[in-house]
């Protein structure tokens, strides 16, 4: 049976009541990390992202969200340690949106990128991407098209690196444009990366360790595929 990765795309701009409910499931450490962020939008986004991860995984496992615990690996990759044997998870946020991915046994990475249409990324791609991908970005029809191509490639690279638990910076030239199966990690392993349908102005990619095909199911808002939506209860 094919694996399925579930990906939730959530708005980071929520009202005070909803924000308070996300905040209620955070740990003291997460709350202090949120408080350390200067911009209010960054604070709220952090709270929504980490709160949503807890609510979704807690609902999937039937565990109180605030009791879940993750341990961060060598390059920051989180692994659920309480309870053990739970699903692999990944989290990403950019601008006004948050992406939460919940997989199964295979390490997962998700990345969400806001496309900044006013900023031409040709120089960035030329400097940091491999020549073929830089040409792909540069040959976009206009600035918005080039920004979209850049955001797609960037999301795919980050998703693979996150699934591999590796560092981003040595992998900026990782080839992700043509093939979906990409080698990354230490020791190197293959990963399968997939573009995820996203609201306009954003790009999302998800990657799983191993080359076996898998299904993706994406949701907008906290509504899940079955059972009552794990809405924050206050």
């Amino acid at each position: 049976m094919r694996d399925t990765v579930r990906i939730w795309i959530l708005s980071a701009r929520v009202g005070p009541d909803e924000l308070a409910r996300y905040d209620a499931v955070l740990t003291a450490d997460e709350r202090s990390r949120a408080a350390a962020l200067g911009p209010a939008t960054a604070r709220d986004r952090f709270t929504v992202a980490h709160g949503a991860l807890r609510l979704l995984v807690g609902a999937a496992l039937g565990v109180a969200p605030e009791r879940l615990a993750w341990r961060r690996g060598r390059h920051g990759k989180p692994t659920l340690t309480e309870p053990r044997g739970g699903p692999q998870t990944s989290l990403s946020y950019s601008d006004d949106l948050v992406a939460v991915a919940v997989g199964g046994d295979r390490p997962v990475g998700v990345d969400l990128q806001h496309v900044t249409p006013g900023r031409d990324p040709v120089a960035l791609a030329a400097r940091f991407f491999a020549a073929g991908e830089a040409r792909h970005v540069a040959s976009g029809p206009d600035v918005a098209g080039r920004a979209d191509r850049f955001a797609r490639l960037w999301a795919r690279k980050e998703a693979v690196v996150k699934a591999a638990g590796d560092r981003l910076w040595p992998h900026l030239a990782l080839p992700v444009h043509r093939g979906d199966v990409v080698a990354c990690g230490d020791p190197p392993g293959v990963h399968r990366v997939t573009d995820v349908a996203t609201p306009a102005g954003y790009r999302v990619a998800v990657a799983l360790a191993g080359d076996a095909p898998y299904d993706t199911a994406s949701f907008h808002g906290l509504d899940g595929p079955s059972g009552p939506a794990p809405r924050p209860t206050g």
Partner: peptide, 12 residues
């Protein structure tokens, strides 16, 4: 942790 700098902004 304070500025909320993303990896794509770090690249820029």
């Amino acid at each position: 942790d304070e500025l909320g700098l993303s990896s794509s902004l770090a690249l820029e």
